[in-house]
């Protein structure tokens, strides 16, 4: 990941801007909405336990320390996916996020909550996403900015 950021640095004009969007390394909660009420069913798992997102954080910290970039702004937003059923959430994840896994315990809790007589109900996946803006710094002869 550091290598990719080094390549990007080489592709940017001096003082060019890099915006990075990547998910937080905290597992996203899966909830069931019943009308205005939200019940937590559990957390989404990933086959590699979100290690890649921690590595992405570390890669950004590494290029900041090396003076390739300067951090201008950092924040988070919540990216919500609403599915009418567990099966449709799983189908969506299979298409867009192949490492994601809803284990049997969480799936059972979701199905149990969806048995509510409430008409207005859906499954909600809440992903916390990090967004950062960095400015490219020109390297001096020493390799430092």
């Amino acid at each position: 990941m550091v290598h990719a950021l080094e390549i990007i640095h080489s592709l940017l004009e001096p003082a060019g801007i890099l915006v990075d969007i990547h998910p937080s390394s905290d597992p996203p909660p899966i909830e069931v909405r019943l009308g205005h009420r939200y019940d937590l069913a559990g957390w989404l798992k990933e086959t590699d336990d979100y290690i890649e997102y921690t590595q992405a954080d570390q890669a950004i910290e590494a290029v900041l320390r090396r003076g390739l970039f300067a951090l201008q702004q950092k924040g988070t937003f919540t990216f919500n996916t609403y599915a009418p059923s567990l099966a449709e959430l799983r189908e969506h994840l299979a298409e867009t996020w192949q490492d994601a896994l809803i284990d049997d315990q969480v799936a059972g809790r979701v199905e149990q909550l969806l048995q509510s007589p409430e008409i207005d109900k859906e499954v909600v996946l809440r992903e916390v996403v990090q967004i950062s803006r960095l400015r490219s710094l020109r390297l001096g002869k020493t390799g430092r900015a």
Binding site: V19, Q73, G75, F79, Y82, P84, I131
Partner: peptide, 30 residues
Amino acid sequence: LRESEVVMKKLRIDPENSEAAALAEFAGNF
């Protein structure tokens, strides 16, 4: 009620447009 049930049958991705708002703030100088 019939109309709301039709809406419920669709998958909704970021209907709050949180990602677009974050991009507008962070990538506005694009």
